[in-house]
Design a protein around this nucleic acid. Structure first.
Lengths: 386, 386
DNA sequence: ACCCACAAAGTGAACGATCACTTTTCGGGT
DNA sequence: ACCCGAAAAGTGATCGTTCACTTTGTGGGT
């Protein structure tokens, strides 16, 4: 950030030549292997002291115009760039943040994108560090990272041991934004199950009365939160639940779940843990001769791109992962700078009603009274938002 | 890597306490703000010289057992961890590699996962740096990164200006593994279009004679390579092509492509640029009353998880992105260490035949002779590999 | 002229580790 | 005893930058 002006000053030259195909180049051979110019070299060339150059670089001001020009010329001539490692050493600021991840296994890229962009805007580099193993290994890794002096802050997307808090010596801010903790308690925004509540309410209003839930891997707080929201809501509304199938986020588990149902207990609506499971559920339903949404409505979660083009297109929950990541990073940076982090209370979730949900079949509608045709829900089209 | 033994030695203690919900903690308050112990502190406590401690840390050997023990104890007692910034400064080795990305927009996580794992195994940290803007901005960013002294190597997943090669002073290895270059020429393994050739050959062998291609965004070498492979193969085999629709990787473009076809030129097989496009194509085909695969066969690319559970399940190309990323990183590390990088010639692609491809409808079969029923291709089931 | 205050630039030390040497220790052969 | 050589440990310099402080330059007021 401080180098911004300087960066703009040093423009590249020589934009010609052709790019070899698939090249790997050991750049800087014997001839170019000369040491990089240092601040002292610049100072000597400009006829000033290193400290003056440093002042120029850090914008400490108080430089005469003539001096500024001499320094600028020297920098340009030598193509000098400050050595960030040395600077870090002296200032004890690295301008780096780490994102600690449970593993590179699941798909965090959108979250990372958000976090990365926010950090970048604040002038930080971001390291993505994935730590395999359990909580304990990860905690140790966190300590290592924190104490290595390489990072000013660490954003952990996975839980660490509480004791870590006492073990940090250095001034390193740490933000934990974990999807699940050790006691299997839900943590963080991802675990928010309210969309499940809303979906069930809407479906119940449409006349659905027999629900079924295919849960995700219970290791994940999000899966547990959705399951719990399902159970709570079903009970609160007094609608029937034919049960919960404990799956593992996979499409196969969706098929399995449907197969596991006794033939007379066909649900009218299935809440799947995510879109992949929902796709499995749809496939399983077809296998049993159930039409979706004619006989059974199905909802997913994640708003997978393909879901919009499936037949039927998939009702789902769109999660603003970018903002989720960005929020976490903003929290970290706020802590780092001792400023207040204004919390953005806007919901991260948006239910997208599509073709896979509709009114229940006539035979399954409650007798009490006739419902009006479902408006947006039964509406056709690709991608109805609600 | 060098610290491995040391890491194992320093085991955490105190594993009790509870984890607050969603906490952000400014760790290291006034009381713990004491400076981190340095190598000198350790040396003093152990009654040896700093150099001896350094030797211990770097495994330079030649330490008496008694000395080793004293140093180990001192390290443990102080909970000392070496300051990597200081070490980097002296050794001029940072142990860091950067991955430069065109933008965090598309979904690179699997590729990153592969690259990250490989780097990690070789003892490097990995920074993911996304550089927006054009080639020129990215090139400048690359120079900045290289000259900052923070990175030993840079893996660019996007093209940079050739002139960059001459501008690097420091010994920084750079590997470019770009999907497309400036002159829109294909680069790298991603651009390999051979699976398209194989798919068309197989479909032609099944009796298909009228093909159609929905291409991806022509900015991408991979899209261009697939289109070119399509055109070449169609010509070589002497089968009819009803044309190529220039899409943009989106599902909508798949629908559009089908809508754009004149009613009498229904293809018997559509090669879509990726699974999302393929899903759009299937949807578009339904819209026109064409059955998939009864009337039209459709192939995708990417092996999206949901594709397996769609109806019909999607024939697709599985790309080993992890290995792709890992290969690129391995190349970088090999360059860094002046060792030879053994190239893994195994194909990165695997065609997965599923329900969306089958024999063409009888009316469209070539008259010359009767074909045997399609074996694996017409085979039902979820996920037939071939 | 003189002094003073403030602006501009310079000095030496320090950040924490490792490198290239030098010095000390120690065991064994004659 | 003596010396030698290898093993073990220590010393001072150094990496490139910035911090805290000191020195030099500059202009204005009386």
């Amino acid at each position: 950030m401080n180098d911004h002006f300087f960066r703009q000053e040093c423009v590249l030259s020589g934009l010609t030549g052709t790019l070899a195909k698939g090249w790997v180049e050991r750049m800087a051979g014997a001839d170019t292997a000369r040491r990089r110019p240092t601040i002292t070299d610049v100072a000597r060339l400009a006829g000033v002291s290193p400290q003056t150059v440093s002042r120029f670089l850090r914008f400490n001001g108080g430089l005469k115009a003539a001096t500024v020009e001499r320094v600028e010329n020297a920098i340009r001539e030598l193509d000098y760039r400050p050595n960030l490692v040395a600077r870090s050493m002296r200032t004890r600021k690295t301008g780096r943040l780490a994102i600690l991840m449970p593993a590179m296994a699941f798909n965090p890229s959108r979250m990372l994108a958000g976090a990365g962009a926010t950090a970048d805007a604040a002038g930080y580099f971001v390291d993505v560090v994935s730590a395999g193993g359990g909580v304990r290994a990860r905690s140790e890794r966190l300590l290592e990272l924190a104490d290595s002096g390489q990072f000013e802050g660490i954003l952990s997307l996975a839980p660490v041991l509480p004791s870590v808090q006492n073990q940090l010596h250095q001034r390193t801010a740490v933000v934990i934004s974990a999807d699940f903790d050790d006691e299997m308690r839900g943590i963080g925004e991802l675990a928010d199950g309210t969309p499940v509540v809303q979906m069930i309410e809407r479906l119940a209003a449409l006349g659905h009365s027999r629900f079924f839930h295919v849960a995700g891997d219970a290791q994940f707080a999000s899966a547990r939160a959705r399951k719990q929201s399902y159970l709570d809501t079903v009970e609160r509304l007094g609608v029937e639940s034919v049960g919960v199938f404990d799956g593992d986020w996979s499409g196969e588990s969706g098929i399995e779940a449907i197969r596991s149902l006794p033939s007379r207990s066909r649900p009218t609506a299935v809440i799947a843990a995510n879109d992949l499971v929902a796709a499995g559920v749809v496939r399983g339903a077809r296998e049993r001769g159930w039409d979706v949404p004619g006989d059974v409505s199905v909802t997913g979660w994640d708003n997978v791109a393909v879901g919009q083009f499936m037949t039927p297109s998939l009702t789902t929950v769109d999660v603003d992962l970018e903002r989720l990541g960005s929020n976490a990073m903003a929290k970290l940076i706020a802590g780092l700078r001792d400023t207040e982090h204004e919390t953005n209370e806007e919901s991260l979730f948006r239910i997208i009603w599509r073709e896979s949900t509709a009114e229940p079949p006539p035979a399954d509608r409650p007798d009490r009274k006739r419902r009006p045709p479902a408006g947006a829900v039964a509406g056709a089209g690709v991608g109805q938002t609600g």
